[in-house]
């Protein structure tokens, strides 16, 4: 899916910290290896640090915020002369091309459900606050 992942700020920080620690501990381990004689303390410290940094990164991966979806009904007026158009939350019993009631705007045509779609809650709120 091409949806952009929404990650918590704390998780981003944790991931960056994990990555930074990983680099630091790899360097420490490297120094331990190239020391003459080989410094086992540094190698073990580096390995332990690597373990912690991987743990931090895996914890950070859990911070993906799943987007909230809502089901909405797009309503228009059945009369071609009327430009009435609104979105509302889906109600049980709604179906596409359902005609009901009288148009809120022209009072001549019927209300017609043009579409029923699942939308990101944020996107829906944006549409509701700023209808075209």
């Amino acid at each position: 899916m091409s949806e952009e992942k929404n990650v918590k700020l704390s998780s981003r920080i944790l991931k960056a910290l994990g990555l930074f620690l990983m680099i630091v501990f790899v360097i420490i381990m490297y120094i331990g290896f190239i020391s003459n004689p080989m410094d086992l303390n540094l190698i073990i410290l580096g390995m332990s640090g690597l373990f912690i940094s991987v743990l931090l990164q895996s914890l950070a991966a859990k911070g993906v915020v799943k987007p909230e979806f809502v089901m909405i009904s797009e309503i228009k007026c059945s009369s071609p002369k009327c430009d009435f158009h609104k979105f509302r939350l889906f109600k049980e019993g709604d179906y596409v091309y359902k005609k009901f009631g009288v148009c809120e705007k022209c009072s001549t045509g019927k209300m017609l459900i043009q579409n029923i779609i699942q939308m990101n809650e944020k996107e829906f709120k944006k549409i509701i606050s700023n209808p075209k």
Partner: peptide, 9 residues
């Protein structure tokens, strides 16, 4: 299987 998405509509 899931509810119809805007992209599909």
């Amino acid at each position: 299987y899931g509810p119809m998405k805007k992209e599909i509509a």
